[in-house]
Design a protein around this nucleic acid. Sequence first.
DNA 1: TTGCTCCTCACGTCACGTGAGGTGGC
DNA 2: TTGCTCCTCACGTCACGTGAGGTGGC
Lengths: 154, 154
Amino acid sequence: MDPAVARYRIGEVAERAGVTTRTLRYYQELGLLDPAGQSPGGSRRYSDADMARLLRIIELRDVMGLDLDRIRVILSAEDRLAQLREEAQRVIPDSRRREIVREAFEINQFMRAKVQEKLAVLQGFVAELDGKASRIRAIAEQLGVDLEPEPVSA
Amino acid sequence: MDPAVARYRIGEVAERAGVTTRTLRYYQELGLLDPAGQSPGGSRRYSDADMARLLRIIELRDVMGLDLDRIRVILSAEDRLAQLREEAQRVIPDSRRREIVREAFEINQFMRAKVQEKLAVLQGFVAELDGKASRIRAIAEQLGVDLEPEPVSA
DNA sequence: TTGCTCCTCACGTCACGTGAGGTGGC
DNA sequence: TTGCTCCTCACGTCACGTGAGGTGGC
């Protein structure tokens, strides 16, 4: 239940995330994702927090199309913000806190703009595909071809 | 005005599409995009049809996240369908025509499903980002930080 | 003890990036 | 003739893929 307990083996984590073990070892090599622990024999053990971080990396990679270096920057900004929330460290000077918050906000706005852009492109894409589909159906009818039952309304 | 006239130089095409000339030469090497002509001196000349094809390749690459081999398959299916529309070649037997139409429809449905998936993920992403943004704003207010004017409602 | 999973090299691949060194066209 | 753009190698890079050969854990 503790998200910091290192309980998962690399193969299990890889399968759940839809990547290979090679990818996990590569992310560790880059310092993007260090497994929380290891077995006595030296094999990697991942925690729930590691799993969540991996899914975040994959999301940023696949959905946002970012390279691993940019992902590293975003993750470390998020890490710093998360630390701010765990109020414990009042040691941080206010000027630094303000900087962290501003950075987090900037990244957030940047990402939102990019996602909106992608959404617009994809919506255009759907419309284009639907137009094509109906043209294909017209040709199919002429040829007497029976296509799939009906268009699935999503 | 003829879309088949080879009038653009590689640098012009690259800039308009937002890629490098290296990318264009690479696509030619793969047989994905052959320039319609060349200058007497041997430099590449691209037509409007080439330009459209390039934009299509980039769209499939960036928006759909497909590799160049899958893109080749999709483009050749689209090429075959376009040929069907130029009714000229009645030489093609009806069985072949039916096959082409079915293939085009299958690709269309596959792509539509993938795009819908991506749309759903991106919409979730926007919601997530907005949630984060409001949490960041709360912290900013506590710290007396002045962030950007206001959230842009899209 | 037998599988299955894990480990570390290390070379291969895809989609280009990035010069080096040289030629073409308004 | 002078820039600017184009050309062809060819090696480099990023994000892994894919064995080779060996060790660990229920």
